[in-house]
């Protein structure tokens, strides 16, 4: 099996329906990967728990050496209890321990967006 390739986060998009999309690119390991169109997954692992919920990621575009990837999760709460989750990426079928943690580069920024207690958009200095 080819290497998984490296996932690079482009953006995280939240829409008014409460859907949260993780969008990025993955560089595929070989020409074979491109031809086979491998399946990718995004994993949400609640902190303090072992199991990971995997959602399929769509390949939205294939360009030279890279796939554009989009995976959507329900951010409207559903039956989820309050808490924190970490986000992983893997090729479908890979062992969970081989999944990559999705990086969210700060890019030298010294402000972070955060929700106020009324749910409004504000920024504060530093990493929240």
């Amino acid at each position: 099996m080819d290497k998984i390739g490296t996932f690079t986060l482009e953006k995280v998009v939240l829409n008014k329906m409460g859907e949260l999309a993780v969008i990025g690119t993955v560089d595929f390991g070989s020409r074979l990967s491109r031809l086979l169109r491998p399946k990718y997954e995004l994993g949400i692992r609640r902190r303090g728990e072992q199991s990971t919920r995997w959602v399929p990621a769509q390949i939205t575009e294939a360009t030279v050496g890279r796939f554009s990837i989009r995976a959507t999760v329900d951010a409207s709460g559903g039956d989820e209890p309050a808490g924190y989750s970490d986000v992983y990426f893997r090729r479908a079928g890979e062992a969970a321990e081989n999944a990559q943690r999705v990086h969210f580069p700060v890019g030298g920024r010294d402000w972070s967006a955060y929700p106020t207690k009324f749910g409004n958009v504000s920024f504060k200095r530093g990493i929240v």
């Binding site: 949260l20 999760v73 951010a75 409207s76 709460g77 929700p115 929240v128």
Partner: peptide, 12 residues
């Protein structure tokens, strides 16, 4: 405001 339907938000 953030979309009111969303209870989950990203952070770094």
């Amino acid at each position: 405001g953030f979309p009111p339907a969303a209870l989950t938000l990203p952070f770094v």
